[in-house]
Computed example of a mutant assay.
Amino acid sequence: MRRLGIAVLAFSLSACTTLDPYTGEKGVGNSAKGAGIGAIAGAAIGAATASKNDRDKAILTGAALGAAAGGGIGYYMDKQEKALRDKLAGSGVQVQREGDNLRLIMPGNITFQTDSAQIRGNFYDVLDSVSLVLKEFKDTSILVAGHTDSVGNDNYNQGLSERRAYSVKNYLSSAGIPSGRVQAVGFGERHPVASNSTDAGREQNRRVELELEPLR
Score class of each variant (00 low, 15 high):
G27T: 10
R55E: 11
L104Q: 01
P192W: 08
V130T: 04
G180E: 14
G38P: 00
D56T: 13
L102W: 03
E209F: 00
V95N: 02
L84E: 05
L212E: 07
L4R: 13
G188I: 08
E203P: 09
K135I: 03
G188M: 06
G27M: 05
L104F: 01
E25L: 09
V151H: 05
Y75R: 11
N30D: 09
A200N: 12
E211S: 15
A35L: 08
E81R: 13
D54G: 06
L132Q: 15
A10R: 13
N122V: 07
K52L: 07
I59C: 10
F11M: 14
Y166V: 14
S161N: 06
S12C: 10
S195A: 12
V126Q: 03
A7Y: 07
A69S: 15
V95E: 03
Y156W: 12
G70R: 01
Q183V: 08
F187K: 11
N101C: 13
T49I: 12
A64L: 14
A69V: 15
A68Q: 08
S91E: 06
L143C: 04
K87D: 11
V126D: 00
R216Y: 12
E25Y: 09
Q80W: 08
Y156R: 12
P178C: 02
K26F: 10
A44S: 12
A194S: 14
N170L: 09
S91C: 04
R163M: 12
A184H: 04
A47M: 05
D199F: 04
G176N: 07
P214R: 02
D199Q: 11
G74T: 05
R120I: 08
V8T: 08
T61D: 12
T61V: 13
A50H: 00
I37P: 00
M106P: 03
Q96A: 15
S141W: 05
A7P: 11
E189W: 05
N109S: 10
D78N: 12
E81F: 06
N101F: 11
S195W: 06
A48D: 07
E209I: 01
D100T: 11
C16I: 13
N101D: 12
T111I: 02
T140C: 02
R164H: 02
F123K: 08
Q204L: 15
V168Q: 00
I6M: 11
Y75S: 14
L215F: 09
A68N: 06
Q113E: 11
A39N: 05
I37K: 04
R85A: 10
A117I: 01
G121F: 02
R202K: 13
G180W: 10
P192K: 06
Y76V: 03
A15M: 14
S161W: 01
Q204M: 14
G152E: 04
I6F: 10
Y171R: 15
R120D: 08
N153H: 08
A69I: 14
F137I: 03
D78C: 07
L60I: 09
A50L: 01
D20C: 01
F112D: 00
D199Y: 10
T23S: 09
A117M: 05
A7I: 08
A50P: 06
G121C: 02
